[in-house]
Amino acid sequence: MDGKRGLSFYILTGVFILFLIFLYGPTITIAILSFQGPEGGLTFPMRGTSLHWFRDLFAEQAVGDIWGSFRRSLALSMMVMVTTIVLSVMGGLAFRRRFAGSTVLFYVIIASLVIPSILVSLGVGLMFNQLGWNINWYTSAFGAQLTWTLPFGLLIMFAVFNRFDRSFEEAARDQGANPWQVFRHIVLPLIAPSLIGVALFGFTLSYDEFARTLLTAGSRNTLPLEIYGMTTNVTTPVIFALGTLTTVFSFCVIGTFIVFALIWQKRQARRVSDAGKGMV
């Protein structure tokens, strides 16, 4: 806490580095192990290095419908992401004023965050069953995942609008802009960087969601379900290869979002505004 760096700085730096190793170490370990030679097992030592297990992934057969499940996961995450952005912005705008039922809705949103995933999964599955509807990744799983991504999106938007300077809107309104024009030309550009944050949550939480999809996806799996299935019957490093690939994919997605957010923030720093700083 002192300006000069005392003993506590070095101790805490050590703790922080250990924490990072703890966070990333296992992931790096399986990334290394996924390059095992064809004879290699699930743990060290490495028996040669090869791309054998990655090649296995691309060959049809042994490991189920990985690419089909990847495509479905991708499509589902895009659907969830777009829906989360649109509904969160609308919800954020709605909550700028108190309205009848707003407190109840707020606590339902919190409930959506704290109710165990398995209950949502079970409930949605049962409901579709009782209604005589088929469960599908693009209907029941889509809805079940929204109950997890929407609270994050909405809470981000609430935080953003709490810090939002209304004088810009008032200025536009004074000049005769209609509500849609105010939203399109004033509000939307100002909240855009935070929307990238909402998009990131919407996409990644859906892409990796397991529990809420388990009982709602039906016969055609998403990628996390496919990977889960593999853990019970695959005992070769092919599962590490898949894990490494999907983690690399996640890193690329996260990196893209972060770069976008930084660019937006730079652009905005040039025009004078402090909106959107609520979310990093």
């Binding site: 296992p26 992931t27 370990t29 399986i30 990131l200 949550f201 990644t204 939480l205 892409y207 990796d208 397991f210 996390p224 990977i227 889960y228 853990t231 599962i239 590490f240 894990g243 999907t246 983690t247 996640s250 890193f251 997605v253 996260i254």
Partner: peptide, 10 residues
């Protein structure tokens, strides 16, 4: 923002 299952397997 990455997969919990993969992180467990790791």
């Amino acid at each position: 923002w990455t997969s919990n299952i993969i992180r467990m397997i790791s």
